[in-house]
Simulated scan of single mutants.
Amino acid sequence: MIYKIYPLVVFLLLSFGKDSKNTTELKTATTKSIAKVEKVAIDVKIENTYNALKSNNFALPELKIFSEALKGFYLLKERGAIQKDILTLIDFSLSSNTKRLWVIDLSSNTILFQSLVAHGRNTGEEFASAFSNSNSSFKSSLGFYATGEIYQGKHGASLRLDGLERGVNDNARERGVVVHGADYVSESFIRNHKRLGRSQGCPALPVELTNEIIQTIKNKSCLYIYHPSRSFAMEEKLFS
């Protein structure tokens, strides 16, 4: 009888394997479909948020950069790495002679500030082009940060930053990369030198705006520094 039962067992095993494979493929396809739907939903949500921004007569950041920043914001908020509905966006693809920093209140969809902001002296002249996470590099670091506490430093009131991307900006606190005011961040400096002044790697602000901005963004809000030279995978780099 064994010769009659054996083919049946083989058939059942093969059929089970086939069903298992089909089930796995179905699950994979379903997961991909759900992820695609979620991505579309997030993209629509972000575009709607962008279109509803109250500009306060400030220029809007580019949609692509705003979208990347907001996706990171959502992820970091979910993980508890940030707590406030405040997003600070810096676009280092722009000339340092332009106002390339935005502070956005996402709870009211309002742009609160648009400002000049300096990059590191070894990051470039008028345009930012080279970045580092290393001590004494005098270069800016890209990516997502959580804002920290205010302290009084050599530039007056300053705001500590915690880099949230391994190998990209997670040495920020150790390096002393902070938000502070500087007199070389001004329209008059641009007129006299044809470009904005540069920092030792800090996102330095105009003196007259510093206190108001750091009071707004302090204590676990999201700051994102963008540059097109970098490809970015949030899920792999961000941590809480």
Rank of each mutant, 00 (worst) to 15 (best):
K220Q: 14
K4W: 08
Y151G: 11
R166W: 00
K218E: 13
W102P: 01
K4Q: 12
L70C: 01
N169R: 09
N133Q: 07
N169F: 09
T31H: 07
L70V: 11
H155R: 05
A29D: 07
I5W: 07
L106A: 08
S33V: 12
D91F: 08
T216K: 15
F73C: 04
N133A: 05
V177K: 02
N48K: 12
V117T: 07
K54W: 01
I86S: 08
F11G: 06
V179C: 09
Y50S: 02
S95V: 06
A35F: 03
K21D: 09
I82E: 08
P61D: 10
K64V: 13
K84G: 09
S55Q: 06
F239D: 06
I5L: 14
I46T: 04
V44L: 14
L8Y: 13
S229W: 00
A204G: 10
I90T: 04
A130Q: 14
G156L: 05
C202L: 08
I217S: 07
G163E: 04
L75G: 03
Q215K: 15
S199I: 08
L101P: 09
F232T: 07
A41W: 01
E208K: 10
F92L: 14
R175T: 00
D85C: 02
T24C: 10
V178I: 15
A69N: 05
E165R: 03
I2Q: 13
E47V: 05
T110I: 00
P61I: 07
L142Y: 02
S231E: 13
L101Y: 02
E149R: 10
A182Y: 06
D105S: 14
D105W: 11
L8C: 12
S229P: 01
V117H: 02
G176R: 02
D85A: 08
I217P: 07
R160S: 15
I214Y: 02
I5G: 00
F73M: 06
A130Y: 12
V44D: 14
L223Y: 03
N133T: 06
T30H: 10
S141T: 09
F189C: 06
I46K: 05
L70R: 11
W102S: 06
F189M: 09
V185P: 03
A146W: 04
L164K: 03
N51K: 15
N56S: 12
F138H: 13
K77Q: 12
N211G: 14
L13E: 03
I213K: 03
Y224N: 07
N169D: 10
G120T: 05
L209M: 08
H193A: 05
N97L: 03
K77S: 10
N169H: 06
I104C: 04
I104H: 03
G201S: 07
K27Q: 13
T28L: 11
L8P: 00
K99W: 01
V103Y: 01
R198M: 04
A157L: 13
A130K: 15
E38V: 09
L196H: 10
